[in-house]
Nucleic acid binder design. Sequence first.
DNA 1: ATAGACCTTGAAGTCACTTGAGGTTCAAGC
DNA 2: GCTTGAACCTCAAGTGACTTCAAGGTCTAT
Lengths: 134, 134
Amino acid sequence: MALKIGKLAKLTHTSAPTIRYYEKIGLLPPANRQDGGQRCYGEEDVRRLTFIRRCRDFTLPIEQVRMLVSLMRNGDRSCTEARDVAQRHLLLLRAKLAELDALERTITGLVQSCDASRATAPMHSCEAWREAQR
Amino acid sequence: MALKIGKLAKLTHTSAPTIRYYEKIGLLPPANRQDGGQRCYGEEDVRRLTFIRRCRDFTLPIEQVRMLVSLMRNGDRSCTEARDVAQRHLLLLRAKLAELDALERTITGLVQSCDASRATAPMHSCEAWREAQR
DNA sequence: ATAGACCTTGAAGTCACTTGAGGTTCAAGC
DNA sequence: GCTTGAACCTCAAGTGACTTCAAGGTCTAT
């Protein structure tokens, strides 16, 4: 393997500055370096960063992600604490999925009605907008 | 009707400061005031703020929400522009739904495995963590 | 009429990046 | 071997979207 930062960023849907930022705040461990000083990564890093990004996409705060990740790494503690964090956010996550689903329906309807009215009609004739506001 | 800011905040899952902030940056119109100077709102505001919050939950930037809302209000323009914004974000939204779904499965598995191992076992015996990192 | 919840403004603080400046390393083509 | 250009480096400052604070005014229930 041996990925450079740009490749890792692409694989995990993040950005190079974000990865450096995570390293700086200790969410990722200091990366191994090549001779020239450039960071290089392996598969483990891909898995870990993917997990972190998913948590962040769901707006789990950095401090809680840090806790989950640290508990994942040193296996000498009970997982109760981590389980509780996970459990709490699972409820939130489900609520959020429902909200996003509602938004998806709203916007899908919007787009379809706009298309149906041939895209050149004035807004007030675009039923979708009235719908979207309900 | 006639809601005060706190009630509106509760109904729309926002906060009073957030509502004032939205008014300040022009995302919401200046609110009607009672005698004492306190803001009062109606059903229209509930609908509008709910739509705004859903967009924000999905991290649509304020400027794009502003555009959708403004297009919604003055019906004298073609809806093409709004349709495009909506369409672009619909794709993103679906990708995000898939990601959140993946996270939900990961975390559900995590919680279940933790429960199964009786919550007192050390982390390394908690299969869920290894799973979560895939 | 007075306690306590709820409201007002403006300014400062916070979180999680993101961008910019100015320089170094690396892989490819000549 | 040399050059060119993309991708990398560090450090500091900037940004978006709130959130919190300070210092007060208003409203409702007892």
